[in-house]
């Protein structure tokens, strides 16, 4: 039955080459922990992707309850955490996932660095990876504010004061991020929400797509 469906689709859109490329490629021995246990270091990239998937899904579901409004943001988070069944787990996944993804990303980066895997011809993919790291830190910074609790508010205020210290454009930069020159308030929250939920994930998806296409193009780096 499945074979028939596959053939029906394949006849029309010829997916075998795509499928072969994605799924039927070889995995070299040196990245396979079954052959060399030390190859577990190759897992960190995949685990990073796994946590990103968790973040995307949990984030999507969190917005079913969350409102980016200074009167209600905290209340909505408090409600989903205390009143909604499994709300605490979903928020917990998003909260801890944000930390775990940074850890995994760091380990992945260190693996690539110490193996020298970024050397020719993989320079571009390394740079895309570092950009992914930046985007992830940006997601962490903007997401920190959203629950609108004291921790969020004051950490963001410090972050924005730091942005203000930038020479020449500091004041403008702060206003652009915060939506107001002095107040960290209603406009800051909506801005951070937009950046956290639309702008940075958009950039993240694009970068991740490039990252993966490049890996399939170039193959995984050889053994040391």
């Amino acid at each position: 039955m499945l074979q028939k469906i596959y053939d029906w689709i394949d006849e029309r859109i010829d997916i075998t080459p795509i499928w072969r490329d994605i799924a039927d490629h070889e995995v070299p021995e040196h990245v396979n922990p079954a052959h060399h246990f030390s190859a577990f270091v190759y897992c960190f990239g995949g685990l990073t992707f796994f946590v990103v998937v968790i973040q995307i899904l949990s984030g999507m579901f969190l917005t079913m309850y969350y409102v980016p409004d200074i009167e209600n943001a905290w209340k909505s988070v408090y409600y989903l955490q205390t009143e909604v069944a499994h709300g605490q787990i979903v928020r917990g996944m998003h909260h801890w996932g944000a930390s775990v993804v940074i850890v995994m990303l760091l380990l992945h980066t260190l693996r690539v660095f110490f193996q020298g895997a970024y050397k020719k011809p993989r320079e571009l993919n390394w740079m895309v990876g570092v950009l992914i790291f930046f985007v992830m830190l940006g997601l962490g910074f903007t997401g920190y504010l959203l629950p609108w609790d004291n921790k969020a508010y004051f950490a963001t205020q410090v972050g924005l004061e730091m942005a203000e210290q930038v020479p020449v454009i500091g004041g403008e930069l702060k206003a652009l991020l915060a939506g107001d020159e002095e107040i960290v308030g209603a406009q800051t929250l909506t801005r951070f929400f937009a950046i956290h939920v639309f702008f940075l994930p958009g950039a993240l998806f694009a970068l991740m797509a490039i990252h993966f296409v490049l890996i399939r193009r170039q193959g995984i780096s050889g053994p040391l």
């Binding site: 408090y78 605490q88 917990g92 930390s99 940074i102 962490g140 004291n150 508010y153 950490a155």
Partner: peptide, 24 residues
């Protein structure tokens, strides 16, 4: 470890000592 949530942001709380997330 349930994800922590502090009291609602109170800009007039002048004595709060800010702290960023651990990776900053």
């Amino acid at each position: 470890h349930p994800s922590p949530l502090e009291g609602m942001a109170d800009p007039t709380n002048a004595s709060y000592i800010p702290l960023p997330d651990w990776y900053f």
